[in-house]
Design a protein around this nucleic acid. Structure first.
Length: 296
DNA sequence: AAATTCCACAACCGCCCCAAA
DNA sequence: ATTTGGGGCGGTTGTGGAATT
């Protein structure tokens, strides 16, 4: 029962593509167009898996692809989108004509992730490490002083070599020429290359999480929630959004057990707040992208 | 000049969802 | 109803070239 296999997986060629193989795919697509990739190897005379052919075409051979370096504008776009929607490379790539998800992913992994880290910004949350460590200190019970001491240590260091970037960790407020967080928006500058224009990292307000500030229109959703993290998944469409990414007026908390569980868990406070704020921000900034349903 | 390390990126892997058989 | 493959996706790895020691 089921479909016949598209190819003999054990005997198809793998590894780098040759110019001849590329030419065969190009010739085939030029004359037949893109259709069923499983037929391509056979019809084009290639000893490759159809999936491999599709990837080769999608990531390398497509005529509309750019093969030059990423521009500062593209870099800025990737940073902003990654900050908002995370590592959904295909969605990010759709905003960058001529770039594939593989291109964007590689550029992120080899350049941007390191760049952010050097700047003292966590490439996952896009928050300054100092803020994360402070929050983690609250969660884990580590004394805050520990991090402050680390901060002092780092602040005493001198900037390395020709970099105008200040020492990395814990110093969001210490190096005023690189960072300015007084407005809640961080500006960072990079002197290592002219590609990097000033960028912004939105700092989430670090207000304490208050469970009573959440609300649901549908109480069934609330009853289904055994863990606070699920609230943002099941209830997001019915959660009223207010300014600053905070959600107020929890009114229907009749699930006392759940509320107590969540409210008592200080470990979840900033984490959950960050998720909800992030989700709201995402929807506000990219409503067209996020029209689709996502499964977290 | 040789050895080593770093970097960029093409290609593969594994998972998921859906549709075909 | 079940199995299997196609297509899409994100994560990881292998490798060649560049840079550094």
């Amino acid at each position: 029962m089921g479909r016949p296999p598209c190819c003999d997986k054990a005997n198809v060629k793998r590894g780098p593509w040759t110019a001849e193989e590329d030419a065969k795919i190009l010739a085939y697509v030029a004359s037949h167009g893109i259709g069923n990739w499983t037929l391509v190897p056979q019809k084009a005379g290639l000893n490759r898996c159809g999936k491999s052919c599709r990837l080769r075409w999608t990531n390398y051979l497509r005529p509309d692809l750019k093969h030059d370096n990423f521009t500062p504008e593209e870099e800025e776009c990737i940073l902003e989108l990654h900050k908002t929607i995370g590592s959904r490379w295909s969605l990010i790539a759709k905003r960058l004509p001529g770039r594939t998800d593989n291109d964007v992913k590689n550029y992120w992994n080899t350049k941007l992730k390191k760049k952010l880290t050097k700047m003292g910004i966590d490439p996952i949350t896009h928050k300054p490490f100092s803020q994360l460590f402070n929050e983690y200190g609250k969660i884990s019970g580590f004394p805050k002083q520990l991090f402050e001491d680390e901060n002092n240590l780092q602040n005493d260091e001198k900037p390395s070599s020709s970099h105008s970037i200040k020492p990395h960790f814990f110093n969001e407020t210490a190096s005023s020429d690189s960072f300015s967080s007084s407005t809640g928006v961080m500006h960072f500058a990079c002197a290592t290359s002219n590609l990097c224009e000033p960028s912004r990292v939105q700092m989430s307000p670090s207000s304490p999480f208050v469970y009573d500030e959440y609300s649901f229109d549908d109480m069934d959703q609330m009853q289904e929630c055994e863990y606070m993290g699920m609230l943002s998944l099941n209830g997001i469409d019915s959660v009223p959004v207010q300014e600053e990414g905070l959600i107020h007026n929890f009114s229907g908390g009749n699930n006392k057990e759940t509320r107590e569980l969540c409210a008592s868990s200080s470990a979840a406070d900033s984490f959950v707040e960050a998720i909800l704020a992030h989700d709201n921000e995402m929807r506000l900034q990219f409503p067209d992208i996020l029209d689709e349903n996502y499964h977290y």
